[in-house]
Protein backbone atom coordinates (compact mmCIF):
# COMPACT_ATOMS: atom_id res chain seq x y z
CA UNK A 1 0.00 0.00 0.00
CA UNK A 2 1.46 3.30 -1.09
CA UNK A 3 -0.79 5.15 1.27
CA UNK A 4 0.50 3.35 4.35
CA UNK A 5 2.99 6.11 5.14
CA UNK A 6 0.28 8.68 4.78
CA UNK A 7 -2.12 6.69 6.93
CA UNK A 8 0.53 6.21 9.61
CA UNK A 9 1.31 9.91 9.54
CA UNK A 10 -2.38 10.83 9.82
CA UNK A 11 -2.79 8.55 12.82
CA UNK A 12 0.21 10.12 14.49
CA UNK A 13 -1.21 13.56 13.86
CA UNK A 14 -4.57 12.66 15.33
CA UNK A 15 -2.72 11.28 18.35
CA UNK A 16 -0.79 14.52 18.82
CA UNK A 17 -4.05 16.44 18.56
CA UNK A 18 -5.63 14.28 21.23
CA UNK A 19 -2.68 14.76 23.57
CA UNK A 20 -2.98 18.51 23.15
CA UNK A 21 -6.71 18.39 23.80
CA UNK A 22 -6.06 16.50 27.03
CA UNK A 23 -3.43 19.01 28.09
CA UNK A 24 -5.92 21.89 27.94
CA UNK A 25 -8.07 21.07 30.99
CA UNK A 26 -4.87 20.28 32.84
CA UNK A 27 -3.43 23.73 32.32
CA UNK A 28 -6.74 25.37 33.16
CA UNK A 29 -6.87 23.36 36.37
CA UNK A 30 -3.32 24.33 37.32
CA UNK A 31 -4.06 27.99 36.57
CA UNK A 32 -7.01 27.82 38.91
CA UNK A 33 -4.95 26.34 41.75
CA UNK A 34 -1.85 28.49 41.62
CA UNK A 35 -1.60 32.06 42.81
CA UNK A 36 -1.18 34.28 45.84
CA UNK A 37 -3.95 32.33 47.51
CA UNK A 38 -3.23 28.64 46.93
CA UNK A 39 -6.45 26.66 46.72
CA UNK A 40 -7.40 23.27 45.43
CA UNK A 41 -10.30 23.76 43.03
CA UNK A 42 -11.15 20.09 43.30
CA UNK A 43 -11.43 20.28 47.07
CA UNK A 44 -13.52 23.39 46.69
CA UNK A 45 -15.93 21.74 44.28
CA UNK A 46 -16.27 18.68 46.50
CA UNK A 47 -16.81 20.90 49.51
CA UNK A 48 -19.53 22.88 47.77
CA UNK A 49 -21.33 19.64 46.90
CA UNK A 50 -21.47 18.25 50.39
CA UNK A 51 -24.18 20.11 52.36
CA UNK A 52 -22.66 20.14 55.82
CA UNK A 53 -19.36 21.53 54.74
CA UNK A 54 -18.34 25.16 54.97
CA UNK A 55 -17.02 26.67 51.73
CA UNK A 56 -14.41 29.35 52.06
CA UNK A 57 -16.14 32.26 50.31
CA UNK A 58 -12.90 34.11 49.55
CA UNK A 59 -11.32 31.09 47.90
CA UNK A 60 -14.54 30.52 46.01
CA UNK A 61 -14.65 34.09 44.73
CA UNK A 62 -11.00 34.06 43.73
CA UNK A 63 -11.47 30.93 41.72
CA UNK A 64 -14.86 31.64 40.27
CA UNK A 65 -14.57 35.34 39.46
CA UNK A 66 -10.85 35.77 38.86
CA UNK A 67 -8.94 32.68 37.96
CA UNK A 68 -11.41 30.62 35.95
CA UNK A 69 -12.48 33.38 33.55
CA UNK A 70 -8.88 34.41 33.18
CA UNK A 71 -7.74 30.86 32.46
CA UNK A 72 -10.51 30.41 29.88
CA UNK A 73 -9.70 33.76 28.35
CA UNK A 74 -6.06 32.69 27.96
CA UNK A 75 -7.15 29.48 26.25
CA UNK A 76 -9.49 31.17 23.81
CA UNK A 77 -7.36 34.22 23.08
CA UNK A 78 -4.33 32.00 22.49
CA UNK A 79 -6.31 29.79 20.12
CA UNK A 80 -7.67 32.77 18.17
CA UNK A 81 -4.26 34.40 17.78
CA UNK A 82 -2.73 31.11 16.63
CA UNK A 83 -5.47 30.30 14.11
CA UNK A 84 -5.25 33.79 12.68
CA UNK A 85 -1.49 33.39 12.44
CA UNK A 86 -1.65 30.08 10.62
CA UNK A 87 -4.25 31.10 8.03
CA UNK A 88 -2.45 34.36 7.32
CA UNK A 89 0.93 32.68 6.98
CA UNK A 90 -0.68 30.15 4.67
CA UNK A 91 -2.74 32.48 2.53
CA UNK A 92 0.09 35.01 2.22
CA UNK A 93 2.69 32.24 1.84
CA UNK A 94 5.09 33.93 4.24
CA UNK A 95 6.58 32.61 7.47
CA UNK A 96 7.12 36.07 8.96
CA UNK A 97 3.45 36.95 8.93
CA UNK A 98 1.58 37.18 12.22
CA UNK A 99 -2.01 38.17 12.98
CA UNK A 100 -0.72 41.70 13.44
CA UNK A 101 0.75 41.94 9.93
CA UNK A 102 -2.48 43.36 8.59
CA UNK A 103 -2.20 46.28 10.98
CA UNK A 104 -4.62 44.95 13.60
CA UNK A 105 -2.43 45.57 16.62
CA UNK A 106 -1.22 49.01 15.63
CA UNK A 107 -4.76 50.01 14.72
CA UNK A 108 -6.06 48.74 18.05
CA UNK A 109 -3.22 50.46 19.91
CA UNK A 110 -3.98 53.74 18.20
CA UNK A 111 -7.67 53.42 19.05
CA UNK A 112 -6.87 52.64 22.66
CA UNK A 113 -4.40 55.51 22.84
CA UNK A 114 -6.99 57.92 21.49
CA UNK A 115 -9.40 56.83 24.19
CA UNK A 116 -6.87 56.84 27.02
CA UNK A 117 -5.09 60.07 26.18
CA UNK A 118 -7.70 62.27 24.56
CA UNK A 119 -10.82 60.56 25.83
CA UNK A 120 -11.99 60.54 22.23
CA UNK A 121 -14.04 57.55 21.25
CA UNK A 122 -16.82 56.09 19.20
CA UNK A 123 -19.14 54.68 21.87
CA UNK A 124 -19.17 53.87 25.57
CA UNK A 125 -17.08 55.25 28.35
CA UNK A 126 -14.22 54.24 30.62
CA UNK A 127 -12.91 50.76 29.93
CA UNK A 128 -15.57 50.25 27.26
CA UNK A 129 -14.52 53.38 25.46
CA UNK A 130 -11.01 51.93 25.17
CA UNK A 131 -12.33 48.56 24.05
CA UNK A 132 -14.72 49.89 21.45
CA UNK A 133 -12.11 52.26 20.11
CA UNK A 134 -9.45 49.57 19.89
CA UNK A 135 -11.86 47.28 18.08
CA UNK A 136 -13.00 49.87 15.56
CA UNK A 137 -9.50 51.05 14.73
CA UNK A 138 -8.19 47.49 14.46
CA UNK A 139 -10.79 46.78 11.79
CA UNK A 140 -10.19 50.13 10.16
CA UNK A 141 -6.48 49.36 9.84
CA UNK A 142 -7.30 46.01 8.26
CA UNK A 143 -9.62 47.54 5.72
CA UNK A 144 -7.07 50.18 4.78
CA UNK A 145 -4.49 47.42 4.29
CA UNK A 146 -6.79 45.32 2.14
CA UNK A 147 -7.94 48.38 0.23
CA UNK A 148 -4.39 49.26 -0.73
CA UNK A 149 -3.57 45.63 -1.57
CA UNK A 150 -6.62 45.43 -3.82
CA UNK A 151 -5.11 48.07 -6.06
CA UNK A 152 -2.28 45.63 -6.71
CA UNK A 153 -4.44 42.60 -7.36
CA UNK A 154 -4.44 41.26 -3.79
CA UNK A 155 -1.18 39.40 -4.27
CA UNK A 156 0.54 38.07 -1.16
CA UNK A 157 3.31 40.67 -1.39
CA UNK A 158 0.90 43.56 -1.82
CA UNK A 159 -1.05 42.58 1.30
CA UNK A 160 2.11 42.28 3.39
CA UNK A 161 3.63 45.55 2.19
CA UNK A 162 0.37 47.44 2.63
CA UNK A 163 0.06 45.98 6.13
CA UNK A 164 3.55 47.17 7.05
CA UNK A 165 2.82 50.65 5.74
CA UNK A 166 -0.41 50.87 7.72
CA UNK A 167 1.39 49.58 10.80
CA UNK A 168 3.97 52.38 10.57
CA UNK A 169 1.27 54.96 10.12
CA UNK A 170 -0.72 53.97 13.20
CA UNK A 171 2.43 53.42 15.25
CA UNK A 172 3.45 56.97 14.51
CA UNK A 173 0.03 58.05 15.75
CA UNK A 174 0.53 56.13 18.99
CA UNK A 175 3.97 57.70 19.47
CA UNK A 176 2.52 61.14 18.99
CA UNK A 177 -0.21 60.45 21.55
CA UNK A 178 2.38 59.15 24.01
CA UNK A 179 4.25 62.39 23.57
CA UNK A 180 1.29 64.55 24.49
CA UNK A 181 -0.04 62.21 27.22
CA UNK A 182 0.01 63.19 30.88
CA UNK A 183 1.87 61.01 33.31
CA UNK A 184 -0.96 58.79 34.53
CA UNK A 185 -2.36 58.44 31.02
CA UNK A 186 1.03 57.37 29.80
CA UNK A 187 1.24 54.71 32.50
CA UNK A 188 -2.14 53.30 31.54
CA UNK A 189 -1.33 53.41 27.86
CA UNK A 190 2.03 51.70 28.23
CA UNK A 191 0.42 48.99 30.28
CA UNK A 192 -2.28 48.52 27.66
CA UNK A 193 0.31 48.31 24.90
CA UNK A 194 2.08 45.42 26.61
CA UNK A 195 -1.00 43.26 26.51
CA UNK A 196 -2.35 41.36 29.49
CA UNK A 197 -5.23 39.24 30.67
CA UNK A 198 -5.85 40.76 34.09
CA UNK A 199 -9.14 42.32 33.02
CA UNK A 200 -10.68 38.97 32.16
CA UNK A 201 -14.21 38.52 33.45
CA UNK A 202 -17.23 36.39 32.68
CA UNK A 203 -18.69 39.33 30.86
CA UNK A 204 -15.69 39.80 28.60
CA UNK A 205 -15.44 36.09 28.07
CA UNK A 206 -18.65 36.28 26.05
CA UNK A 207 -16.90 38.41 23.44
CA UNK A 208 -13.99 36.01 23.40
CA UNK A 209 -16.36 33.17 22.65
CA UNK A 210 -17.63 35.26 19.78
CA UNK A 211 -14.08 35.58 18.48
CA UNK A 212 -13.66 31.81 18.60
CA UNK A 213 -16.91 31.37 16.68
CA UNK A 214 -15.68 33.78 14.01
CA UNK A 215 -12.66 31.50 13.54
CA UNK A 216 -14.71 28.38 12.84
CA UNK A 217 -15.48 29.12 9.15
CA UNK A 218 -11.74 29.43 8.56
CA UNK A 219 -11.47 25.65 8.71
CA UNK A 220 -13.41 25.52 5.47
CA UNK A 221 -10.32 26.90 3.75
CA UNK A 222 -7.94 24.13 4.84
CA UNK A 223 -7.67 22.58 1.37
CA UNK A 224 -7.48 25.98 -0.30
CA UNK A 225 -4.54 26.86 1.93
CA UNK A 226 -2.95 23.53 1.07
CA UNK A 227 -3.07 24.10 -2.67
CA UNK A 228 -2.00 27.72 -2.24
CA UNK A 229 1.38 26.37 -1.14
CA UNK A 230 1.86 25.51 -4.82
CA UNK A 231 1.49 29.12 -5.87
CA UNK A 232 -1.41 31.17 -7.20
CA UNK A 233 -1.48 29.72 -10.72
CA UNK A 234 -1.39 26.11 -9.62
CA UNK A 235 -4.02 26.85 -6.98
CA UNK A 236 -6.29 28.28 -9.66
CA UNK A 237 -5.94 25.26 -11.87
CA UNK A 238 -6.86 23.08 -8.88
CA UNK A 239 -10.07 25.05 -8.40
CA UNK A 240 -9.10 27.52 -5.67
CA UNK A 241 -9.54 31.25 -6.04
CA UNK A 242 -6.37 32.70 -4.46
CA UNK A 243 -7.52 36.26 -3.91
CA UNK A 244 -10.91 35.21 -2.61
CA UNK A 245 -9.20 32.87 -0.15
CA UNK A 246 -6.85 35.63 0.94
CA UNK A 247 -9.63 38.14 1.46
CA UNK A 248 -11.82 35.70 3.37
CA UNK A 249 -8.96 34.57 5.60
CA UNK A 250 -7.81 38.13 6.19
CA UNK A 251 -11.28 39.46 7.05
CA UNK A 252 -12.34 36.63 9.35
CA UNK A 253 -9.03 36.45 11.19
CA UNK A 254 -8.82 40.24 11.51
CA UNK A 255 -12.32 40.33 12.97
CA UNK A 256 -11.54 37.58 15.48
CA UNK A 257 -8.19 39.07 16.46
CA UNK A 258 -9.68 42.55 16.80
CA UNK A 259 -12.23 41.22 19.26
CA UNK A 260 -9.47 39.62 21.32
CA UNK A 261 -6.96 42.44 21.10
CA UNK A 262 -9.43 45.15 22.06
CA UNK A 263 -9.76 43.39 25.42
CA UNK A 264 -6.24 42.12 26.01
CA UNK A 265 -4.06 44.58 24.14
CA UNK A 266 -1.58 43.32 21.58
CA UNK A 267 -0.11 40.09 22.98
CA UNK A 268 2.74 39.35 20.64
CA UNK A 269 4.49 36.22 19.39
CA UNK A 270 1.73 33.69 20.09
CA UNK A 271 0.32 34.14 16.60
CA UNK A 272 3.76 33.86 15.05
CA UNK A 273 5.14 31.11 17.24
CA UNK A 274 2.24 28.68 17.57
CA UNK A 275 1.92 27.94 13.82
CA UNK A 276 5.63 27.22 13.52
CA UNK A 277 5.65 24.93 16.53
CA UNK A 278 2.58 23.18 15.13
CA UNK A 279 4.34 22.67 11.79
CA UNK A 280 7.20 21.00 13.63
CA UNK A 281 4.88 18.42 15.15
CA UNK A 282 2.21 17.77 12.50
CA UNK A 283 3.60 19.04 9.19
CA UNK A 284 1.99 21.45 6.78
CA UNK A 285 -1.38 19.91 5.90
CA UNK A 286 -3.74 22.65 7.10
CA UNK A 287 -6.41 20.16 8.10
CA UNK A 288 -4.10 19.14 10.94
CA UNK A 289 -2.06 22.29 11.16
CA UNK A 290 -4.98 24.59 11.98
CA UNK A 291 -6.40 22.71 14.98
CA UNK A 292 -2.90 21.92 16.24
CA UNK A 293 -1.88 25.56 16.06
CA UNK A 294 -5.02 26.57 17.90
CA UNK A 295 -4.32 24.13 20.72
CA UNK A 296 -0.65 25.06 20.93
CA UNK A 297 -1.57 28.75 20.97
CA UNK A 298 -4.02 28.09 23.79
CA UNK A 299 -1.43 26.18 25.79
CA UNK A 300 1.29 28.74 25.15
CA UNK A 301 -0.78 31.70 26.28
CA UNK A 302 -2.11 29.81 29.30
CA UNK A 303 1.38 28.85 30.37
CA UNK A 304 2.70 32.34 29.75
CA UNK A 305 -0.07 33.83 31.83
CA UNK A 306 0.58 31.37 34.61
CA UNK A 307 4.21 32.47 34.61
CA UNK A 308 3.19 36.13 34.45
CA UNK A 309 1.00 35.75 37.53
CA UNK A 310 3.40 33.77 39.63
CA UNK A 311 7.01 34.53 38.76
CA UNK A 312 7.17 37.71 40.85
CA UNK A 313 4.41 36.96 43.30
CA UNK A 314 2.63 38.89 44.64
CA UNK A 315 3.40 41.17 41.71
CA UNK A 316 1.89 40.38 38.30
CA UNK A 317 3.69 40.92 35.03
CA UNK A 318 1.77 41.69 31.83
CA UNK A 319 1.60 38.47 29.85
CA UNK A 320 2.90 40.22 26.73
CA UNK A 321 6.22 40.70 28.47
CA UNK A 322 6.40 37.03 29.35
CA UNK A 323 5.61 35.81 25.83
CA UNK A 324 8.43 37.98 24.56
CA UNK A 325 10.99 37.23 27.27
CA UNK A 326 10.50 33.49 27.57
CA UNK A 327 8.75 32.62 24.36
CA UNK A 328 11.24 34.07 21.96
CA UNK A 329 14.38 32.26 23.22
CA UNK A 330 12.42 29.01 23.37
CA UNK A 331 11.13 29.57 19.88
CA UNK A 332 14.55 30.36 18.45
CA UNK A 333 15.99 27.30 20.16
CA UNK A 334 13.34 25.02 18.65
CA UNK A 335 13.73 26.51 15.19
CA UNK A 336 17.48 26.09 15.24
CA UNK A 337 17.20 22.53 16.44
CA UNK A 338 14.95 21.25 13.68
CA UNK A 339 16.50 19.16 10.99
CA UNK A 340 14.17 19.77 8.11
CA UNK A 341 13.51 23.17 6.63
CA UNK A 342 9.87 23.99 6.92
CA UNK A 343 10.10 27.27 5.13
CA UNK A 344 12.71 27.92 2.49
Amino acid sequence: MLASGYTRMSKRRVFVLMLLVLALPLIVFISMSVGVLPVSPLGLILASLSPNHEVNPVAWAVIWYLRLPRALMAVMAGAVLAIAGVVLQGSLRNPLVSPFTLGVSSGASFGAALAIVLGVGIVGMGAYLIMANAFVFALLATFITLGIARLRGMTAESVILAGIAVMYMFSAGVTLLQYVAREWELTELVYWLMGDLSKASWHRLRYTVLAVIVCIPLFKFAWDLNVLMMGDDAAKSLGTDPSMTRVACACLSALAVSIVVCMTGPIGFIGLMAPHLARLVVGSDHRFLMPTSALIGALLLSTADLVARTIMMPLELPVGVVTAFFGVPLFVHLLLRTRREIWR
Binding site: A3, G5, Y6, L238, G283, E341
Partner: peptide, 15 residues
Protein backbone atom coordinates in the same frame (compact mmCIF):
# COMPACT_ATOMS: atom_id res chain seq x y z
CA UNK B 1 9.42 25.02 -1.87
CA UNK B 2 6.68 22.67 -0.78
CA UNK B 3 6.82 21.21 2.74
CA UNK B 4 4.74 18.13 1.91
CA UNK B 5 5.48 14.49 1.27
CA UNK B 6 5.11 13.15 -2.26
CA UNK B 7 1.89 11.39 -1.34
CA UNK B 8 0.46 14.57 0.15
CA UNK B 9 1.51 16.53 -2.91
CA UNK B 10 -0.12 14.16 -5.37
CA UNK B 11 -3.19 14.18 -3.12
CA UNK B 12 -3.53 17.92 -3.77
CA UNK B 13 -4.80 16.81 -7.17
CA UNK B 14 -7.92 15.56 -5.37
CA UNK B 15 -8.67 19.07 -4.13
Amino acid sequence: HLPLTVFETVALGRR
